[in-house]
Design a protein around this nucleic acid. Sequence first.
DNA 1: CCGTGTGAAGCTGTTCACAGCT
DNA 2: AGCTGTGAACAGCTTCACACGG
Lengths: 222, 222
Amino acid sequence: MAFKRYIPVESISELTINRLSVYLRCLQQLEHEGTTTISSQELADRFHLNSAQIRKDLAYFGEFGIRGVGYNAAQLREHLVNILGLHEERRVLVVGAGNLGTALSHYSGFNTGGFRIVAILDSDPRKVGKRVPGGLVVESVSDLTRIVKERKVHIAVITVPSNSAQKVYDELVEAGVQAVLNFAAAQLKGHPEVKLKNVDLKIHLELLSFFLTHASRLASVT
Amino acid sequence: MAFKRYIPVESISELTINRLSVYLRCLQQLEHEGTTTISSQELADRFHLNSAQIRKDLAYFGEFGIRGVGYNAAQLREHLVNILGLHEERRVLVVGAGNLGTALSHYSGFNTGGFRIVAILDSDPRKVGKRVPGGLVVESVSDLTRIVKERKVHIAVITVPSNSAQKVYDELVEAGVQAVLNFAAAQLKGHPEVKLKNVDLKIHLELLSFFLTHASRLASVT
DNA sequence: CCGTGTGAAGCTGTTCACAGCT
DNA sequence: AGCTGTGAACAGCTTCACACGG
């Protein structure tokens, strides 16, 4: 572990972790622009963040700045990569070769910066054997357990219809994946030892719809 | 407006609105199973929510329950549809016919329950004119303004590369869209009168990576 | 008697403001 | 002199617990 951890991980909020990802993106952009040193205030002004919050978020993991100066951009980026565990390759399996699964399997964000999609599965025999954009060939969901074990899958992404999501989830856990990202609108249950993150894309549209309906004066967010 | 609003919309948190979407999904499932009446406690047990929070969230918008009994599932669903503004059709435009844009344009969640994708645009002449799964034909981004006006687009979804996101966003605002859902990893700025929601899919993978790295004892989350 | 609706309490997350280091 | 790191104040969100109405 390249950084000192000051407090137990369990007590760090997901909000903080998500912001670390944001800071990482900001630093990558700044470095790309040639910035070498940046203060929390500059970072905040540039990306509409709060400087105290940046300092507090970082303080959970160590002292990365120099008082009176600021942070070394490259160094801080490296620290964030380590904190987020992006220095080691994470092998990702996509289950469900529908629209979303196919898109994610060759979405650049899912094949860079520490992540690599190692397989895409589907239960539909007509899809199995077809090559998806990005180069992977769809494999059968009946080989799920074998593939998870052989390719040492860390993270599984579920993009199957909601009525088969629970079954897939149970198989994934049984096969030994360590974390699951679920895009199906289903309430998955039963395995507290595997980190599960549910993402509902429709919720964002419904939020916007709410604001359109009630807009007297609107405000930007996120 | 079919419901009474008790407090100003501006003071209702996005967290509450997002939960209303969740409650709506739960009710749809319950109705599908034949449930007609449900208490906040049952709803909470069934979907791992907090009953007081359900009641409080609903209380922002009216009194929908019957004391001593609970809520009528169909009625409450209808109220939520009204609150979220899903009773009127929302016309959605997707800008960017890459992997994600194409997937979203025929993702069922984006073409049901009040939403309808009316066009998908791209700047690449090789993509323009091609039919994407779902039936839409890719149109040129140079027709953006005309399409937004003619088809009365309410919501735009940005799935273009991050370096062209700001340009697209500015054009969309200029053309008169009312809300924007941005999937590009870019800090969009300049138009507080248009509701903007940023979604970063990679952030979820990075969160999972963090937990894999630091897992001593893991916990499930949403 | 039971479950909603809601003030009040408790908790979590954010921001302030400054001591301390460079 | 200036910016980090951080306790303390503040704000916002969640949960409790019970009065009230059906």
